[in-house]
Design a protein around this nucleic acid. Structure first.
Lengths: 134, 134
DNA sequence: TTACATAGTGTAATATTATTACATTTATGC
DNA sequence: GCATAAATGTAATAATATTACACTATGTAA
């Protein structure tokens, strides 16, 4: 019978680790971190990430080749990431105005959107003062 | 003296090739294509792409790991790419409403944006009918 | 309880994309 | 000519991602 004490899968291990770290990590960083738990091959990590991605538990940050937990699973709109190029901090937003812009631009041009990659690089509020002080 | 009959550089070769192809290509696809012109190493291609990127002549499509010519050099706003996952066609847009909303979201959250990656995956108008007919 | 289907895993090899380091050559300004 | 910066050549290696194939665990249903 299926029960909640089900076996811990590699996807569980990867998700838990990403949650603990709270920042985007590369697949190989995850691999190194989970060697102690018996994860020994890149394939294993990519398989886990693939499942988590399809389930909406993680996102891939294309411009960093990195993976991060979803801030609030099951939102339907495409996430927007603010990426601080100074400290590496990444913040996820869900913005309906932006989503609307994309919908309008798409219908205007006869394009049927499926998934959007929106990654804004810049400098976060923590680092702006530091930048001025430099 | 500097003149317009200056030597043809690798950047020139890469840009001309990307223009001829009119679609995003990977660095290694460019490398293979330019072997006949004496380009023999990945480094050479990456160096050329780097110069072209800084000069605003090409863009990098993060979610495809590919490179493409800029539709209209020297626009200041971040480009938006519509990527057809069926036929691979990529179309570049510049959208000031989107740019404005990114600026608003940024200032609201104390983030100083520098460069935005906006890549919309989906199905273009050429392929939508084909999809229905399938 | 067997049989089957499906999801999950292990392992090795390989493909793809990108960078580093160091030596050399070519253009340009003085 | 000489100094300097820009561009190039070459080799090695790093970082990211996929493929193929064999095997194990779990759930379902005759």
């Amino acid at each position: 019978m299926p029960n909640e004490a089900a076996r811990i899968t590699n996807a569980d291990r990867v998700l838990e680790f990403l949650r603990r770290q709270g920042k985007p990590l590369s697949a190989y960083e995850i691999l190194e971190a989970l060697r102690g738990e018996g994860v020994t091959a890149a394939t294993t990590v990519y398989r886990a990430l693939d499942k988590l991605l399809k389930a909406g538990h993680v996102h891939r940050i294309e411009s960093l080749n990195a993976w991060t937990v979803c801030c609030e699973p099951h939102h339907s709109e495409s996430p927007v990431f603010q990426i601080c190029d100074i400290c590496g901090n990444v913040r996820e937003h869900v913005d309906s105005r932006l989503a609307r812009n994309i919908a309008i631009m798409s219908s205007d041009s006869g394009f049927a959107p499926n998934h959007s990659v929106i990654e804004i690089h810049g400098c976060c509020s923590d680092c702006s003062p530091a930048l001025l002080g430099a």
